[in-house]
Structure formats: structure tokens, C-alpha cells
Design a protein around this nucleic acid. Structure first.
Length: 418
RNA sequence: GGUGGGGUGACCGAGUGGCUAAUGGUAGCAGACUGUAAAUCUGCCGGGCUCUGCCCUACGUAGGUUCGAAUCCUACCCCCACCA
């Protein structure tokens, strides 16, 4: 029988495991957690790795716990950070936590015998009394031990506040708390979390005399060496309002050939033999990019649902295919980033530079101007080289749409109101 | 508390009185080439405008010297190292 650990290893999720973890995972279903920081009001594609890890855990009969860091977020994790981070306002943390909780609900099943659980460590960390914390948790760690951790060691030159120094203890406390109250025996996280996670394992072992485990994921980079999920117009978010389903789909479609197999394993639920099959077709005819298409379709469906995925497929075909003339602009507008303009504005003639900024295709009018001079923009598929171009009623297609494009890949739809 | 070193654009890092919106590299954007890939080459890369030019903002903060300062002076803030 294929166990959780086999699946995780075979699909490229495992960078490292704690001693004994493999043996425990072969014994049967387990309750495990992964944490998500409320540093923004949306998760991004990078969070998909632990999310998929939890989903596989559930598919193998385990009980997944998605933990939102409303408490730890007040402290700030120094792992992987070269400098001290500013603290977020509490109401911002709370807003972000609520948004993230909502997103996490989509990926796990919250019914059945091994229903997923959603927790927020604000519930136990915020009211924790300092003296209790120092006696019950702090007493189990020497400063010497804490100084050994990479997250601390690497900051000895640039400085680290006591707050961030203490972070690992708050996360350790989480693991202990989830172990005692929920029977949690496994933590999943990025490899940069190794130090924090092992501190938690240490704490459970000392306070409860129990052995708990961890699996850490490799740090994802692309074949070109760029940080994963950081291309396009910034971060690739899971929130449709921040990254439209069409843009999300395009992000995956543009994956490098060298990355696509790895991504299929990590970001889809497709069986491995099917992936092997697709990769054969891919190498037989790379230009067709069947692997990227499948990856984009599947990943978009997991995050935004089947309907949105289909819409993104159709929109991509329309925009990049030959049949742009036939395209259904209304359908494109539904999946692409769009921006409203009024008929009155259009009657007066809307400066293209201004509209490009409003639609988010340029960050300033100067940039828009330079882009036009460099032949980077087009209106309804026609390259525009006139910096003083004004949009008018004649530019409107299918009653109320104007398609703007930046470069080859970035689109925005103007929707005329009123 | 003392001594020394340092704070330059998204990042790294030049620049010690005018030629500096500030060399170079990275990242980013666009063009060519391609497969909506990679690599390579070219252009752009603080903001605004009535745009072969003009205006505003910017070299930790606040003042000062000077016709003119990122560059000199003063005070303050912050970081690092060593000492106490």
C-alpha cells in the first residue's frame, strides 16, 4: 500500500524528515499541521506546497490541521529574513487571518471521519501569561540551544531583537499545544522552518515524553534561478481579486520546460503514471507544451474551481490563438483583470496613457509613455505607437469592451459602463 | 559609557564641491528571435508636463557654509565591531 510518506517522497515534497518520522508514517494515519503567516490578506502560490501536503495527508486518511498564525504573527519569524521586520498592527493581523482562513477552507474537506481542522494560534498565544510561558516553555530551552539555530546565528551580525529571537519558542509552544489538545504528531513546513519545528519536537519530548515528527519541503526555485511565484506583476496570489484566474492560469502556462514535471507532481493531484505519460508527449513535441497546459488547467481548477479554469483556458486560446476576431469579449472580461470606464469619459476622448495606469498595466503615466514609445502596448490587438492617442467610442468592441495589452502576455479589459 | 567603521535609488555597490536623477551589477519591463519556454542581443528602468526641452522630488534626519553639496561643517537618529 502506498503510504503518505511514499506519496510525499515520490512527488518531490520531501527535503528532510526527522529521525523516526518515516517509521511512524508507515504505521498509519496521522494528525498533522502546517502553519500559515497572516503577513498579507491572501496566500500566494508558495503556500500551495504546504496546502497540497495537508491535502495528501487527508487523502491518506490523516487529519489535517491548518494553523493560521494570528498569535505568532505578532512576533515575526526571523527564519530566512536578513533583517528585523516591522511589527504589523493587531487589527491588520486579524483582518489578514480572517481572509486566509477563508482561503484555506477551499483546499481541505471539513466533513467526514478525518475532517480537516482550522485553528488560529491567537486563541492560545495572545492570552498566554508571560510568567507561565517563561516557566513552562522557556525553562526547557537553553540560550545556547537557541543560538545554534540558523535563523538566529545568521542574524548575529545584523542584529536580532529579543522578540524575533523568542519566535521559535512561540512556534514550539504551538506544536506542544496542538499535540496535547488535538493529538497532533506531525508538522509540515518549508525547509527554512526546520529550526522552529525541531524546537517544537524538543518541547513535546521534554514536557510530554512523546516523540513527534516533521517533514520539511524543499525551497522552491525556478530553473532560471528566480524565486518561485514572484514573476509577472509581482506575487502570484490565490485571491482572485489580486491575481485574476486568467493571470493565475498564465503563470503556470509560462512555466519553464525544466520545471514543469516537478510542478505537475507538486501542484496537481494527477497520478504519477499519468504525469510520466504527459512528459513523454512533452519531450516528443516541446512546442505544443502539453505539460504546461495540463499544469495550468489543473492548478487553476484546484485554486479557483473547474468553471474558472475552463474560462481561463478559453480566454487564453482566444487571446493567443488566431481567432481573436471571434472572441467573446464578455467572457474574457470575466476572467481577466478589468477596469471600468464611463461612456461620458470616452466621449471626451480618454488619454491612453491615463487608462493604462488605471488598468494597472503601467505604474505611472511616464512609464506608460515610455512603453508606448518602445512599442510595448496595443489596443484591440493593434500596436499603438502614438503617445498622445486618445480612446474614443470607435474603439469599443462588442458594445462595451476595449482590450488593452502590454507586451505579449499582459492583458486588461476596459469595460464601458452607463 | 568609550573608540573605530558605516547609513546612496527595489537590492548590491561606485561616487569626497559643479560635467550627478547620480558609474557598474542584479532584479523588473518592452522589442527582436522562439514554442505565451530557455539562452542571446537591443532599448527603458524616481515622478509630472504644453517632451529634441522644462519642472518637482531624492543620496539616514534637521540645520548651516557656498553662486553651487550625495560630497564640506554642526547637531541628532539608527546600524555594526571592539572595549567597558
Amino acid at each position: 500500500m502506498t503510504t503518505l510518506i511514499d506519496t510525499l517522497v515520490d512527488r518531490g515534497f520531501v527535503q528532510d524528515v526527522t529521525p523516526g518520522a518515516e517509521a511512524r508514517l508507515r504505521l498509519g494515519a496521522i494528525t498533522g499541521y502546517a502553519g500559515f503567516d497572516p503577513t498579507a490578506d491572501s496566500l500566494h502560490v508558495g503556500s500551495l506546497v504546504p496546502i497540497m501536503g495537508l491535502a495528501w495527508l487527508q487523502r491518506h486518511g490523516g487529519t489535517p490541521i491548518a494553523l493560521v498564525g494570528g498569535g505568532t504573527g505578532m512576533v515575526g519569524d526571523p527564519s530566512g529574513k536578513r533583517h528585523e521586520r516591522p511589527v504589523l498592527a493587531v487589527d491588520e493581523i486579524d483582518r489578514n487571518s480572517a481572509a486566509i482562513e477563508l482561503q484555506l477552507r477551499r483546499f481541505l474537506a471539513f466533513d467526514g471521519a478525518n475532517a480537516a481542522r482550522l485553528r488560529n494560534n491567537a486563541d492560545w498565544l495572545r492570552d498566554l501569561r508571560l510568567m507561565d510561558f517563561l516557566r513552562d516553555t522557556g525553562k526547557h530551552f537553553t540560550v545556547n540551544y537557541m543560538l545554534q539555530k540558523d535563523s538566529v546565528k545568521s542574524r548575529m551580525d545584523t542584529g536580532i531583537s529579543f522578540t524575533e529571537f523568542s519566535y521559535m519558542l512561540t512556534q514550539a509552544h504551538d506544536y506542544w499545544h496542538l499535540h496535547v489538545t488535538e493529538g497532533c504528531e506531525l508538522q509540515l513546513g518549508g525547509s527554512d522552518q526546520w529550526g522552529n519545528i525541531t524546537a517544537g519536537i524538543e518541547l513535546v519530548s521534554r514536557r510530554e515524553g512523546m516523540q513527534v515528527h516533521a517533514v520539511v519541503f524543499p525551497l522552491l526555485t525556478t530553473a532560471t534561478g528566480a524565486k518561485f511565484g514572484k514573476s509577472e506583476s509581482g506575487n502570484v496570489w490565490l485571491d482572485a481579486a489580486r491575481t485574476s484566474p486568467y493571470e493565475f492560469f498564465q503563470f503556470w502556462l509560462n512555466a519553464d520546460d525544466r520545471d514543469v514535471e516537478r510542478f505537475l507532481k507538486l501542484f496537481t493531484f494527477l497520478p504519477l503514471d499519468e504525469i510520466a505519460h504527459i512528459m513523454q508527449a512533452q519531450s516528443a513535441e516541446p512546442a505544443a507544451r502539453v505539460a504546461q497546459r495540463l499544469l495550468a488547467r489543473e492548478a487553476t481548477a484546484i485554486v479557483h474551481g473547474d468553471d474558472e479554469a475552463e474560462r481561463a483556458v478559453a480566454a487564453s486560446a482566444a487571446v493567443f490563438g488566431a481567432g481573436m476576431g471571434e472572441a467573446d469579449y464578455a467572457a474574457l472580461a470575466a476572467t481577466m483583470p478589468s477596469c471600468a470606464v464611463t461612456r461620458a469619459e470616452l466621449a471626451d476622448g480618454l488619454a491612453l496613457t491615463e487608462v493604462l495606469v488605471r488598468a494597472g498595466l503601467a505604474s505611472s503615466k511616464s512609464e506608460a509613455r515610455r512603453g508606448i514609445e518602445g512599442r510595448g502596448f496595443s489596443v484591440n490587438g493593434e500596436a499603438e505607437t502614438d503617445v498622445n492617442r486618445r480612446l474614443a467610442a470607435a474603439d469599443v468592441r462588442q458594445e462595451r469592451f476595449i482590450l488593452l495589452r502590454k507586451g505579449k502576455k499582459h492583458h486588461a479589459m476596459l469595460v464601458v459602463d452607463g
